[in-house]
C-alpha cells in the first residue's frame, strides 16, 4: 500500500487502518482480553468436563444461532452504512445505521429472554463454574453491544466518513467476538 493511499497518514503502524486509529487500539486490546477469557474457559472445562457438558444442556443453541444471524445481519447493515457515507449519502447512512441498531436491540432482547429463562429455572452465575463463565462472558459481550449501540447513535448524529468507519470497526469487533463465543459456549461438547 502506498503512503498516499493510507487512510490515516501520520499514525505510524496504525496508518493503514480505516476510521480513528485509537479505536483499533481498543479493538486489539478487547480481542486479547476475550482471548484470555476463552483460554481460561477451555482450561476450566478440561478440568470439569462432566459438569460443563451437563450444564451446557440448559442452554438453547438455536437461540444462540439466531442471535448470531441477527448480529451478522446487523454487521452487514453497518457495512452498507460505510458504503453510503463514502458515497456522500447521509440520509441513507442514517437509515442503515438505524437498521443495524434495531438488530442490535433485537440481539439484546433475545439475550434477555435467555437470561430470564435461566433465572426462572433457578440458574444464576453462582450455580456453578460453567454458568459463572456463561453469564460472565455473555454479559461482558452484552456490555460491548450496548456501547456499540451508543456509538451507532452518536455517529448517526455526527455523520461523517471517519466517525461511521470508527463505529463500524467497533461493531464488527462485537460481531467477531460473538462468532467465537457462540460455538465455545453453545456448540462444543
Amino acid at each position: 500500500m502506498s503512503s498516499r493511499a493510507l487512510p490515516n497518514p501520520g499514525w505510524g503502524p496504525l496508518s493503514a487502518l480505516p476510521g480513528n486509529p485509537l479505536m483499533w487500539v481498543l479493538i486489539l486490546s478487547e480481542l486479547l482480553v476475550f482471548m484470555a477469557f476463552f483460554v481460561l474457559y477451555i482450561t476450566e472445562r478440561a478440568a470439569q468436563v462432566a459438569l460443563f457438558d451437563a450444564s451446557q444442556q440448559h442452554l438453547d443453541p438455536l437461540m444462540g444461532g439466531l442471535n448470531t444471524m441477527v448480529l451478522l445481519t446487523s454487521g452487514l447493515f453497518v457495512a452498507f452504512a460505510v458504503e453510503a457515507i463514502a458515497a456522500g449519502k447521509v440520509r441513507r447512512t442514517r437509515q442503515w445505521l438505524g437498521a443495524a441498531a434495531g438488530l442490535g436491540v433485537l440481539f439484546g432482547l433475545i439475550k434477555l429472554v435467555e437470561y430470564a429463562s435461566k433465572f426462572a429455572a433457578g440458574i444464576t452465575p453462582e450455580t456453578n463454574t460453567f454458568f459463572g463463565f456463561y453469564f460472565g462472558l455473555t454479559a461482558f459481550h452484552f456490555a460491548h453491544v450496548l456501547f456499540g449501540l451508543i456509538l451507532l447513535g452518536l455517529v448517526s448524529w455526527r455523520t461523517n466518513v471517519e466517525n461511521v468507519e470508527t463505529a463500524a470497526a467497533f461493531w464488527h469487533m462485537v460481531d467477531l467476538i460473538w462468532i467465537l463465543l457462540y460455538p465455545l459456549l453453545y456448540l462444543l461438547r
Partner: peptide
C-alpha cells in the same frame, strides 16, 4: 485493503485463539 502486517496480526490472533480452544477441547 490494509497492510499485510495488520492482516497477519488479526488473522494470527484469531488462529491462535482457535488453536488454544482446540487444544483445550
Amino acid at each position: 485493503q490494509s497492510s499485510g502486517a495488520w492482516k497477519g496480526a488479526f488473522v494470527g490472533i484469531i488462529t491462535l485463539t482457535l488453536v488454544l480452544i482446540s487444544a483445550g477441547y
